[in-house]
């Protein structure tokens, strides 16, 4: 099991969040929409030119690539 950045996962990959870095504002926004350590995240689509599209906690969420960089995950 290797820890990667969320943006490094291909579409269709399941993963579990290992760590979230970032400032107060980002952490607060990310945790309240559902990104917390241990949460399962499925990458739905990962195009370089668009925000990352993921599925977590019953929700389809778009997240800016720069922000997604701050989320480390373990591939499942």
């Amino acid at each position: 099991m290797k820890t990667k950045k969320l943006t490094q996962l291909a579409s269709g990959t399941s993963s579990r969040i290992a760590q979230i870095r970032g400032g107060h504002r980002f952490l607060s926004r990310a945790t309240s929409i559902g990104f917390t350590v241990g949460t399962k995240v499925l990458v739905l689509q990962n195009y370089r030119s668009l925000p990352l599209l993921v599925y977590l906690r019953n929700t389809q969420v778009a997240i800016d690539r720069n922000e997604a960089e701050k989320i480390d995950v373990d591939e499942l």
Binding site: R25, R29, I33, P51, L53, T59, A62, I63, E67
Partner: peptide
Amino acid sequence: SSGLIMELPP
């Protein structure tokens, strides 16, 4: 300036 984090509703 924080980037997009947005739900795509069904």
